[in-house]
Design a protein around this nucleic acid. Sequence first.
DNA 1: TGCTAGTCAATACC
DNA 2: GGTATTGACTAGCA
Length: 931
Amino acid sequence: MFNFIVGTKDGTVGPNFARSDGEGDDRLAHILTEASHMMKTPTGPVTNDDSRSNEDSSSPRTQCPSPFSNKDSSQNRRLKKYENDDIPQEKVVRIYQEELAKIMTRRVEDMRHSREGFPGGGMPPHMERPPEDIRMALEAYHRELAKMQPGANLPNLPNLPNLHGLPGVPGVPPFPNLLALQQQALQANQHMNGAGAVQDLSLPKDKNAKMNGMTDSDKDKPMDAEEAIRHAGSAFSLVRPKLEPGQSTGSSASSPLGNAILPPAITPSEDFGGSAAASPLQRMASITNSLISQPSNPPHHPPPQRSMKAVLPPITQQQFDLFNNLNTEEIVRRVKEALSQYSISQRLFGESVLGLSQGSVSDLLARPKPWHMLTQKGREPFIRMKMFLEDDNAVHKLVASQYKIAPEKLMRTGNYSGAPPCPPNMNKPMPPTQKMISDATSLLSKMQQEQLLSSGHLGHLGQPAPLLLTPPGFPPHHAVTLPPQHHDNNKERKPPPPPQPLHQPPVMRGMHQHISPSVYEMAALTQDLDTQTITTKIKEALLANNIGQKIFGEAVLGLSQGSVSELLSKPKPWHMLSIKGREPFIRMQLWLSDAHNIDRLQALKNERREANKRRRSSGPGQDNSSDTSSNDTSEFYHSSSPGPTSGVPSAKKQRVLFSEEQKEALRLAFALDPYPNMPTIEFLAAELGLSTRTITNWFHNHRMRLKQQAPHGLPSEPPARDQSSAPFDPVQFRLLLNQRLLELHKERMGLAGVPLPYPPYFAANSNFAALIGRGLLPPEEQTKDTPSGLDLSMPLKREPDGDDFEDDDVESNLGSEDSLDDDSKTEPKAASTPAGRSNRRKPAAPQWVNPDWQDEKPRNPDEVIINGVCVMRSDDFRREAEETVRVEPSPVPREPSPSPSPVQPSPHTHSPEVLPEDKIKTENEDDRWEY
DNA sequence: TGCTAGTCAATACC
DNA sequence: GGTATTGACTAGCA
């Protein structure tokens, strides 16, 4: 289904996108071009129920959110905030008018087709929209226009009968450029659906075309034998889409590869009824969507289930004969290599190539059975994998699909050669170094051309500084230095003439389809990037030029301020990042290499400031909000769209705010068991008066953030549950918690300096005392002021395997946690990776990282260079361990606890011993606790 | 099903 | 008006 996208976040906020009044027309044209690109040929609606599609649409942030989805409010807000932000109202009006023209023109075209005789007679299937809908839409347009320009001279509402009249449509002004763009987009789409379709790898083009007019039942029919035979030999040809019963989808939706580009559909009813709170542009978009898309009554709510599961024709006997003895391990190895190298998800691979679910793929790849142990059925996936590996184009199609890159585009990089494919034969991959360098080089070149230098809105493009990215296989000092690309002006990026419909300008398409994939590719192909240095430079640049994280994040990275803050303050080492996580750093690097980076942002900033000024001065009542954010345009759109929800901005989702007591309780619980099981979670939820979901979230977040905050910037595993200690004990928990709450209470009463007696329990059970300290005190306090001799530190434990940072020496000294526990001493290994949960998973590592690269890691046992910047001295850990004083465990008096619930400080805690003063932290410290 | 990574956005804080 | 923190969420993997 066609979705008119008012603007894309990425497109709008990309480094190449900024606005000035003089270029509003271009921008609008781009908006529309972008929208047109989103439009598929009349092949039927694309369901968005596939989570890949969801991901795709949300990740590149281009979706036009359904007003019914949970994310809507925020998404809507974001759309408004990022895209329509400061478009003058008159521009909005014009867009409306242009869209009207578009609709009319399309309608006229449709009618003409109809009269000229569409195959099958009558109207083409996608045109079967009743005139009432058209009228409704047009009226909606006019309503919107009227709302914005009450006195404006609006184009006449054309009489519907006139739609049938050909060349001219009364009241509709000609918009040749617009129509040209539209036309181009249509051609592009035809191209996309034809040879080299980006998306649909499962369907041959003719089939695809055939299915354009299919009914659902048609689509459910199996591929005819001839078709199957004809396409045998390609792994993809084996894949057949299976539509879920009752699902109304078009052909393109049937493949997981076929719906990647399109954002979620919006149905007419949603358009006209449910989008009142959206901005005018969004409403217009919705209207347009509903008009241009089809069928006229698509499912109101896109089904949440997967739209497609590949149904593969059985492997023929011939194929079995051909592959009668496969080395499953080897196949699996190569498949994993391919998937990781190109960052193809198991799900995509499974569904597209094997016809299996992600879980099955994972299982197959993790534990391939030897060939002779497999049944015929069990061998099938391996045969398909083999065929996949031997299909030179398969991986590229899959990559193209995953990244939403036109295969043609991949070909242009010079490495993903299409047909005839050069070495991408996965059997003999090009030497990584050579391949990566050429990939990186071409990609960099491409990116510089298309991304960095396409930002024409702010003025003349200059010579970018050399881009310094280290190509894989090269040490950092061998960074690729690309010759600066020169672009005279934006016109270079104007759409080329129709013969190359896919070669669209990257502007607006920008991050989403064209650029983002490249960044993605760059992230995958760049072996090393000094994230620390990059962020330092970024911070300096922003600081020096008084540019906020918010605008930088939105304009350059496509991220929110909070994310930028985290990235800049806690950059992860490159090789610890997934490809997705690398993207922002690639963008930062690119931004740094842009000679006009600051200028562009400054201009954008000024523009926003001006827009805000205009907004404020646009009249009384227009700005009745607090206007805390200069970039938040929601009020602008709300004030200009007096619908039923006018003045009622979508309710802000209120975040749960934990009380200090709750936080203490959670920290304590975490110290006791960082991986609580469900009963524990439920207990905590009940105890703290929170939902289990909240508890789970907190533990997840806490583990993740603990990991991020490891000493010396060294990412670390969260503490593992001590195997020797009992599982989470509610009684102990309550007891300890009461103690902690009493401390808190005393702090609040201003008695922080008063020695706080230890409860007997603490004296008796040093484990829990240590746990309390380790779990509840910030590391800096834990390590620097611990006169009691009781080690309250909680050195962050790491898993003994896998990690690049892994350093045996360090590892052996990380377990000071063990030193606290006599039992764990007896089985140190088990304690460091308790059987419970902490060793269930591999340490997080980028899935795609080439194992060969990891051999280059420094091996000095005392010093680990991280990302070329951070140096971790294992001495630090050793010292911590040495300072640890072991306290022999003593019997624990198990006394019942008062167990207040929800958590309240208990005044009845008894404590003959003294808690060191420095263990009592202030509230303020508490707020600033770091891991 | 449960985990991690990445991210958003509300909120706190400066 | 900026940045930091953090609860919540999604996607993908095992």
